[in-house]
Design a protein around this nucleic acid. Structure first.
Length: 413
RNA sequence: GCCAGGGUAGGGUAGUGGUUAUCCUAGGGGACUGUGGAUCCCUUGACCCGGGUUCGAAUCUCGGCCCUGGCCCCA
């Protein structure tokens, strides 16, 4: 029947869904603000090259790319980090560092939709630019944790550092390193062994295997020895431990791309099926790829839609909702009373049809908590009739009394 | 890109080749005109799209689109 349908992988949001989304978004913004992070915005579309520089030509297949009328190769943003770094290079070279920025934006990827994966989706993320210290790394993780928890979601946090694995395979070619990291990330032991064997590197297996199964820092450094990053890594983790943040050490977390510099972390929530990762982040260096000064950064992105799915849609409208019912005599008065009630903070809807009180009451009962009736009697006595639609109690009282009674809405259960 | 299961009014559904496609709910109109959140009456509204088989297709078949879940990917 519908002539037009939504593009694949996109969604419409009715008020019952939009309102809790906004509420959670607001909480996240507020939390980020408390940490001194300030919101930034970037264009919905960018030069496609911005993203290929970051992630390689392969992502062209997974983006919405198009040519504009001037022949420019553009892409809808598939993520925000590259754009933020580009913005940093373009606009913010001289701002005092570190920069603490966050964003909440929709992104677009041309992928097969499934649970928690859409072609238009929202990311809440933050970037700390110009710190490059254990404290900075720790702050970013704590911020991510605070934001997710402020949204009311419980999740599991895994933290690793690419230096561990890299120290063991640093003499290998880029391609071999990349493959090994991939197998480790997937925890695919069999493929890892097969690959190492085929490359004649099977003697690496013991140490790699030890490493990714380690649960304590000491065990890790027993495998890697005294790598240059050791002191920083230790002070980073001692900051986290002191903060009381809950996490597990995962030395196997890998990233396929070279600009990640060390600390990496991921977060997972339940109730999401395959796509259960709600958080990803780490320390990186990207600015120099966009023509800027080489600058240490650290950031994360939260999959906002997955957070919403994991939380489940809860109650929506902040009550109480007041419906104004009126007879023709009460029309003028009804609009005045409506505004007085709005000024007092209530959500007020006035009946717009000339229908009987019964029909108005029927309608009111579907969405409102209180009915306020304004008719001839009320005008003569300069009062209103207040009906509690839950308890069905009704009384004639002044507007002031009505306000006082309805204010107790939240307490009455 | 691959695999599986789906797609019937706004929502939920019945319907295994044969009259006018079932029921609930919702929406609209009316009765009613100071409480009927009721009740009653009327009404709107659907077989995802396109080919094929057939006298006849919602039903069988093929292709596409979309949904759900999984694989791949995950910046």
């Amino acid at each position: 029947m519908p002539i037009l349908q939504r593009p694949r992988g996109t969604r419409d949001f009715l008020p019952d869904e939009m309102e809790p989304r906004r509420a959670i978004e607001d909480v996240m913004r507020e939390t980020a603000g408390l940490w001194g992070y300030r919101e930034v915005g970037t264009p919905v579309f960018e030069e496609a090259e911005l993203f290929t520089i970051r992630s390689g030509q392969g992502i062209l297949n997974e983006m919405y790319v198009f040519e504009d009328k001037g022949g420019r190769a553009l892409a809808l943003r598939p993520e925000i980090t590259a754009a933020v770094q580009r913005m940093f290079v373009n606009e913010a070279k001289v701002l005092p560092r570190p920069l603490r920025w966050f964003y909440f934006s929709d992104c677009f990827r041309y992928e097969r939709p499934q649970k928690g994966r859409y072609r238009q989706f929202w990311q809440f993320g933050a970037e700390l630019i110009g710190a490059g210290t254990p404290r900075g790394d720790a702050e970013v993780i704590m911020l991510a944790d605070a934001i997710i928890r402020s949204a009311g979601l419980s999740y599991t946090l895994e933290i690793g550092n690419l230096s561990f694995v890299r120290s063991l395979i640093k003499s290998q070619t880029h391609e071999i390193r990349h493959k090994i990291m991939g197998f480790l990330d997937k925890r695919d032991e069999k493929q890892l062994i097969d690959f190492l064997r085929s490359e004649g590197l099977i003697d690496l297996y013991d140490s790699l295997n030890h490493l990714i199964k380690a649960t304590q820092l000491d065990e890790i450094f027993q495998v890697t020895g005294d790598i240059p990053e050791k002191d920083d890594i230790k002070s980073f983790f001692s900051l986290l431990d002191a903060s009381g943040i809950e996490y597990t050490l995962n030395p196997g977390i890998a990233r396929g791309l070279d600009y990640y510099t060390g600390m990496v972390f991921e977060g997972f929530a339940e109730g999401l099926g395959t796509e259960n990762q709600i958080l990803g982040g780490g320390a990186y260096r990207l600015a120099h790829l966009f023509g800027g000064e080489d600058t240490a950064s650290c950031g994360f992105a939260i999959g906002f839609d997955r957070v919403i799915v994991a939380l489940g849609l809860t109650n929506t409208r902040k009550g109480p909702v007041v419906a104004i019912l009126l007879t023709p005599d009460g029309e003028n008065k009804a609009f005045i009373v409506a505004n007085e009630l709005r000024a007092a903070g209530f959500i007020v809807e006035i009946d717009l049809y000339s229908r009987g009180l019964g029909a108005q009451m029927t309608h009111a009962s579907k969405g409102a908590d209180y009915a306020v009736i304004i008719g001839k009697n009320e005008i003569l006595q300069n009062k209103v009739t207040l009906k509690d639609l839950k308890t069905k109690e009704q009384s004639l009282c002044s507007i002031e009394d009505a306000i006082i009674r309805m204010k107790s809405f939240d307490n009455r259960g």
